[in-house]
Amino acid sequence: MPSRIVGGVGLSHVPSVGPAIDRKREQDPAWKPLFDAYVPVREWLRKRKPDVAIVVYNDHVAEFTFDKYPTFALGAAERYAIADEGFGTRPLPAVPGDAEFSIHLCEQLVEAEFDLTVCQEMGVEHGFLVPMNLCFPHHASDWPVKSVPLQVNVVQHPLPTARRCFNLGRALRRAVESYPGDLNVVVLGTGGMSHQLQGKRFGFMNEKFDQWFLDELEKNPEGLASLSHHKIMEEAGAEAVELIMWLTMRGALSPGAKRVHRHYYAPMTTGMGLITFED
């Protein structure tokens, strides 16, 4: 039986969420609004009965370094190790993959003329782990879904365009639907929202832009696909360019996919957005 995409989630992957979970601080006044927003999202995800999560994210100079930097890298392993990105290794079980499904995706995407780096071994860090913690919390020694990490270069220019990321999403949908494994697949588009970490504008956020982006992601993703990196960085901060990865998620959903949840919280240095779609 063919496989299908049953839902998409756009969400921030702020690194401090990891330690907040590890140290059980989810009920702290500053954290509670964020974690409370995910309770109905997790319930909704469980009802979609997902088998695999395709997580579109960026590494932050931990697994991939500038000696050789892939534009798009897709994991094709049976398990992904927890990477140390400079702050120690979080106490999490390794993440299970679905190598056969990953390889099918690689073959289909390369045939659709997307140039991927295929990773048969890959460690994952906060860009991937925080969304997994929030959407698919792990059990003691396992995770409730298998994963396919899809890593996008958004950290060292030249970056792939927003439109390229959107089109990759569309091709990803076709690749998923041609897989005969009868899988229910959820796509996570991660990163953002508005934030800047480098230089004088450290701490910059732009809620107006973020809310507009959430509106457009639902109703006019084609318009977002036309955004230049420069425009996103100017309006929302240099590091907000991560938002192009949300377009891969949106492109993998049907144009009329129904938006279910929406949340926004910006206590410190990042506009933390959350949006879900049913398909």
């Binding site: 932050h60 950290v155 480098q198 004088k200 450290f202 701490g203």
Partner: peptide, 28 residues
């Protein structure tokens, strides 16, 4: 300003006991 990538710099922050916010305050 010399061109270091921010995410590379965070590793130096970690090794020298400088949190992101401390480095950020200095950059501001």
């Amino acid at each position: 300003e010399a061109g270091m990538n921010i995410y590379a710099m965070l590793k130096i922050g970690s090794a020298t006991g400088n949190s992101l916010y401390r480095m950020g305050a200095q950059m501001r």
